[in-house]
Design a protein around this nucleic acid. Structure first.
Length: 234
DNA sequence: CCCCGCGGGATACTGA
DNA sequence: CTCAGTATCCCGCGGG
């Protein structure tokens, strides 16, 4: 009966571990003389790590709600502090690794030319879009239980019916929304992509599909990131 | 009938 | 101020 509470505790332990891990990594980074090189090398790892922190965070808070009811956030929610510190770590980690990394600008001049269909004026300073976020999730093996490719080759993906709300919560959190994001609202946003043709709805439940152009744009952007990371290492 | 996922209109909000 | 890209709310539909 208390399994969800136990689960929450476990997740909090894991969170603390990850948090400590982040601190150590960062300390190492700051102590290193050529830290900016490390920052570039570690960029991807940091991104992945922060994703896991993200998901664990939401998982633990959601489990807490399931365990004790919807009003938990107002009553003594012990991990509030933890969540705050995790968020600050997240910010610290996300900012350099995410979109506008310093080396992303000069290494890829063709990016703005080939990506950014029509809306992006210069291709930089762009906010994270929902489908970018979903693509990131899909590429993260740690999120496979929430969201996964059905046949990845054609860009079809499906939400897990039990964890779809976690993906939504993550999205809302990533955007820094005041109110919690829900699957219903997120799917509404997803449906808006039907108009622009970036994502289309598949007849199956909880299943959507990236359009060919969207998918190739996302994949080429991802390849760009990888080659940048490799280039720094080499 | 109920629940859940879906479709989409209307309107508000926010950053470029 | 405008406009794109959501976020939020809400109502209706249909399948299981």
């Amino acid at each position: 009966m208390n399994t969800s509470q136990t689960y929450q505790t476990d997740l909090e332990v894991i969170l603390e571990f990850l948090e400590e891990h982040c601190r150590q990594e960062m300390r190492g980074q700051w102590e290193n003389a050529n830290f900016h090189v490390n920052q570039q090398i570690l960029g991807d790892d940091y991104g992945v790590l922060s994703h896991h922190v993200d998901s664990l965070q939401v998982l633990s808070s959601t489990k807490a709600q399931q365990a004790t009811g919807p009003q938990v956030k107002e009553s003594g929610f012990d991990s509030a502090e933890l969540r705050e510190s995790v968020m600050s770590i997240e910010e610290a980690l996300n900012t350099p690794a995410d979109e506008e990394s310093p080396f992303g600008q000069h290494v890829s001049p063709e990016e703005s030319a080939q990506s950014s269909p029509s809306s992006t004026p210069a291709g930089r300073g762009k906010k994270l879009r929902l489908f970018h976020f979903l693509f990131e999730m899909l590429e993260d093996p740690g999120m496979a239980h929430c969201l996964s490719w059905v046949p990845a080759s054609v860009g079809v993906f499906r939400f897990s019916s039990t964890y779809k709300e976690h993906v939504a919560a993550l999205w809302g959190q990533r955007k820094g929304n005041r109110r919690p994001m829900t699957y219903q609202k997120m799917s509404r946003a997803l449906r808006n992509y039907t108009r622009s043709g970036e994502i289309i709805k598949v007849r199956k439940k909880l299943t959507y599909q990236f359009s060919g152009t969207t998918l190739s744009t996302l994949r080429s952007q991802q390849r760009m990131k990888n080659t940048n990371a490799n280039r720094v290492i080499l």
